[in-house]
Write a protein that binds this DNA or RNA. Structure first.
Lengths: 228, 228
DNA sequence: ATTTTTTGTCACACAAATGTCACATTGACG
DNA sequence: CGTCAATGTGACATTTGTGTGACAAAAAAT
């Protein structure tokens, strides 16, 4: 699956190299030579990943990364930092920017692509408005309906959002706090165990249409949705 | 992350200097003035890295390095060679000892620490969320699943973490305390033997999918994971 | 205002997982 | 071949994590 990758790099030669790499890997590069340009481009296209040089004219890459990670709409976008030397990685780590990974220049195309792949795989896919089917179960975000084997399920609002989230990210294990973040909203003071209760209610509702064991418990970690 | 670093150096002055450096860098120096002493100390503590002078009384550093690299139990331990002059580096390189890096005396503390750090980072891959495959065994941290020959293994939380750790660092011997540090957490009061029990449980689970002898016992030292 | 639904939390039950022990087995070494 | 230390193994009590039903407050519907 191709992704939009925003490249923020002021040196044209490296720009070019990165662009080439990303294109060959089947992704869609978006090029910015400065932070200002990047901000402009981000309004137009929401990138799936940002490649960010840490030394930039004007605002430093570090500062920009920190700003991105503190903003509600952009903080979920993974960032890979480009640094000149390996010692700098530790320095940047210490500064506690929210970067997801680091690559040192000069980099090998193989390494870069491997890291891009890893970061993209790690990120949880967004919840869309497209209908989702999993086995005989079907959830339609638009009509707000869930049917299993033809029967319509009766879910409460929270149960619906929970199921929507789980079906959007099948096979993946979700910790309770991850679920709280994504399903309840970002600033809640709700106990972790509350998730358990809602999982149970959801399981009960699913069982009513013959869907048992679609939601699995991974002890000590969280829950997983699977078509099975 | 502090590491045990074995220093093999006969000149007391340089010994002292190295010790100081390593301590300041937050590591734990183990001092040996001769090869014999070093061998003795290696039985007691398994070092994460060896700093080795190439000119030593008795057996030369070169010979010792070669021996270490040919020995099953120590060949995975990285070695940094200390040489008097830069021209000697090429000579030693030509002799094809398995040294991982070289430092010339006199050395700057900064350079030494940088190289130590680099070697340690190279040798100790951190546990990531990337799936790991080893032969027909596959562990996926994201889905929290382990499959062997297609069939899914049923592991407890600790067994999973343990296997994850081992598979992240294969072909390498881990002492019980190292395992406790990395798998259990940083400050536990748990008996060393507890590791043995969990290793056994893990072996049992692996055997259920036909994976025998993937975890080997190195008597007096620890355990090693190997694709075989 | 009253009823109904939804929600978060709690207490308890139950099953899985954990750490430790005692004993069996193995391997190293004289 | 015998001794000793290290490791394998099964059993056990305890701890931990999760399922579950009930309940009251809050929100929504009537």
């Amino acid at each position: 699956m191709p992704a939009n990758i925003l490249i923020i790099e002021d040196e044209p030669a490296i720009q070019e190299l990165l662009t080439l790499n990303i294109t060959q890997a089947g992704h869609n590069p978006i090029r910015a030579l400065s932070v200002e340009q990047a901000q402009q481009l981000m309004r137009e296209t929401m990138p799936d990943l940002i490649l960010l040089d840490w030394m930039l004219p004007g605002m430093s890459g570090i500062e920009f990364a920190r700003r991105l990670k503190s903003d509600e709409y952009s903080k979920s976008i993974p960032i890979i930092m480009l640094t000149a030397r390996s010692e700098e990685i530790d320095k940047i780590r210490g500064l506690d920017v929210g970067a997801d990974d680091y690559v040192t220049k000069p980099f090998s195309p193989r390494e870069l692509n491997a890291r891009i792949k890893a970061v993209l795989r790690r990120r949880a896919p967004q919840m869309t408005d497209d209908p989702i089917e999993s086995g005989t179960l079907r959830l339609d975000p638009v009509t707000h309906r869930v049917t299993g084997n033809g029967i319509q399920l009766d879910l409460g609002p929270t149960e619906f959002r929970l199921l929507h989230y789980l079906m959007s990210n099948p096979e993946r294990v979700h910790s309770r706090s991850q679920v709280l973040d994504r399903v309840w909203g970002d600033r809640v003071f709700v106990e972790d165990r509350t998730v358990d209760v809602h999982i149970r209610r959801l399981r009960q509702a699913l069982a009513a249409s013959g869907h048992e064991e679609m939601i699995q418990t991974v002890r000590g970690v969280g829950y997983r949705f699977s078509a099975k």
